[in-house]
Design a protein around this nucleic acid. Structure first.
Length: 272
DNA sequence: ATGACCGACCATGTCGGA
């Protein structure tokens, strides 16, 4: 069946529920993975999602910062919340979709929010950057990647906070020492990707020599005019799902909605 | 100067985002 998965760093799910509703009602993905929900689990707006046809929900949130959630039209099971770098800071959530979701073979969706890494790209003086590098290193060694390499049917999405390719940023030259595009991060991102055999689905639809962004800074006077974006949000699949993706969409215009997130939704449709 | 910002919180500044 056709099964679509969207990912969106929403930067407060409570504040921006109206935008999420607008997106879900128009595009109707089967599953939406959210990051930066900034919402404790008991405050997650479950009823609002139920009302618009997304009653199957898994959350891993906390007060104020970070937080991830998976909302679905179909039943989900096998919910996992992995912690990295010995922190319980709500950066991973997984769920498995099987026969009761209409899938013959089960698929596990992993939703990640990788640390941003602060300003200074030096792990010695900036512990946030050190945390980010450690997180990516741990991800490469983690069962999530090992299982993918060993034949699991896995989809990994989220705000990975790394723009790995030259044309994932508006200027490779001007971004080379800016956190999100430094060689240190890109190298660890690549090691992680290779460790799981993860396939970059977005780039299977848009060649690497074309600019591709999912995030535009709030600070720009006119985000669309300057168009200085980065591709921080990703959809990766394990080798078992290499040929499953049939369509990909980046909803750039969501950046122009009223009181927007600085990230836009990315949706991939699969034949599963 | 890419950037004149944005959200949560026991708020009226501070932290985190990227």
């Amino acid at each position: 069946m056709r099964f679509s998965v969207a990912t969106w760093n929403i930067n407060s799910v409570r504040l921006r529920f109206p935008l999420v509703k607008r997106f879900l009602q128009k595009h109707e993905p089967d599953v939406l993975c959210l990051q930066e929900t900034k919402c404790p689990d008991d405050k997650f707006p479950r009823k609002d999602f139920e009302k618009i046809g997304y009653p199957h929900i898994a959350v891993y949130g906390q007060k104020g910062y970070h937080g991830v959630a998976i909302v679905s039209r179909h039943p989900l099971g096998g919910v996992q919340r992995e912690n990295f770098c010995k922190k319980e800071d709500c950066r991973h959530l997984a769920a498995t979709f099987g026969p009761d979701a209409g899938l013959k073979e089960p698929v596990t969706i992993h939703n990640f929010y990788v640390p941003a890494g602060g300003d200074e790209p030096d792990p010695v003086i900036n512990e946030k950057f050190a945390h980010k590098l450690s997180f990516l290193e741990e991800l490469a060694e983690h069962a999530v990647s090992r299982d993918a390499r060993n034949g699991a049917r896995s989809i990994l999405v989220g705000d990975l906070n790394v723009a790995p390719l030259e044309h994932d940023v508006w200027s490779h030259k001007q971004m080379i020492r800016v956190v999100s595009h430094t060689p240190e991060e890109v190298e660890r991102f690549e090691k992680f990707r290779e460790s799981g055999g993860w396939i970059d689905v977005m780039r299977a639809f848009v060649p690497a020599d074309r600019k591709l962004y999912t995030w535009w800074s709030y600070r720009a006077l006119d985000w669309a005019e300057s168009d200085r974006g980065r591709r921080l949000d990703h959809v990766l699949v394990s080798p078992a799902l290499e040929k499953a993706a049939i369509e990909m969409n980046i909803l750039k215009k969501a950046r122009g909605w009223k009181q927007p997130s600085d990230h836009v939704p990315v949706t991939v449709a699969f034949e599963l």
